[in-house]
Simulated assay, not measured.
Amino acid sequence: MDTASDQELAIALARMSRNLLSQDTVQNTLNSIVEHAVDLVDGCEHAGILLLHNRRQVETAAATSELVRRSDTLQGELCEGPCFDAADNGVQVYRIADMTGSVQRWAQYAPYARDLGIASMMGLLLYTDEEEYGALDLYSSRPEAFGEHSELVGWVVASHAAVAFSSARMDAQLQTAITTRQRIGEALGIVMERYRIDEEQAFQVLKRSSQHRNIKLRDIADHVTSTGEIPGAR
């Protein structure tokens, strides 16, 4: 690449990073990641994010086309494929130059991929969690579509995406925690006023209702604040 192309790519990646961090929901962040991947990685025609739960259950968190969803479903059913393995094994990058030829590593998946029109693809690790893994999937209908430069840019995109995804999830979790705390506080106030008891006693009332009915405390609180009734209370 020449200097001008390097500068253009650097500017595009910087804009992508800012755009990802500006998204207001986790899903919007994921959707933006796959759109940027198609725009920035040479040869990429389709992109998606595959999440692997408990090392078995596949979820398509974002996709630019139905082809991506069908590929993810196949990889989940067969428990193999570049993106499945990138997520499952924690490998940074899998790159298949030509899916139209003999592919030994994914012998079951490859024929189905060819039927979908997939000729080359990459799976790039996004993150690993205790019970969840994520990979960025890139697809092309052309053999040899992804070279070393595509792999490098894909890895950089995935690295930025991993940071943005983590930040979005943390923000969402924090917001959920704040909202839950507020709803529980409202529910405590209702119980305290109704039964003329203090905050600790009111909390025990909600806690017992949660345990006896096997319902999360925040759901008990939501029920109390929306109906004024405590499940199971006499």
Rank of each mutant, 00 (worst) to 15 (best):
L136M: 06
V68N: 10
R69E: 15
S209N: 09
L152A: 15
Q57V: 13
R196F: 04
E148R: 13
D115K: 12
S140A: 02
H149D: 03
D98G: 06
L21T: 13
Y112I: 02
E200K: 03
R15H: 13
A177V: 01
R18L: 09
R18G: 15
T176P: 00
Y195G: 04
E148S: 15
I11E: 14
A162S: 15
P111G: 03
R105N: 00
E148W: 04
A233W: 05
S141T: 05
M99F: 07
I11D: 11
E45C: 04
D198K: 03
A161Q: 06
Q23N: 10
P82Y: 01
L78N: 11
I178T: 05
N28I: 04
S22D: 15
D88N: 08
N31A: 02
T180Q: 14
H53K: 14
A221H: 00
P231R: 08
D219G: 01
L30G: 03
I96F: 13
T73N: 08
M170V: 10
K216Y: 04
R181I: 00
S140L: 03
Y139W: 11
E130W: 04
V157D: 03
V26I: 14
H212Y: 07
G43V: 08
I33N: 09
I184P: 04
E131R: 13
D137F: 11
M16A: 09
V163C: 01
P231I: 00
A63L: 08
D42M: 08
L52F: 10
L52K: 13
E229D: 13
A4K: 04
A37P: 05
M16Y: 09
E199Q: 07
E8K: 14
H149P: 00
L52C: 12
K207Q: 13
N214G: 09
S141I: 02
N89F: 02
S209W: 09
E35M: 09
Q75D: 06
A63N: 07
S22N: 13
A164M: 10
T225G: 07
Y112K: 14
L20D: 12
L21S: 13
L174C: 00
Q23K: 15
T100C: 01
Y112A: 14
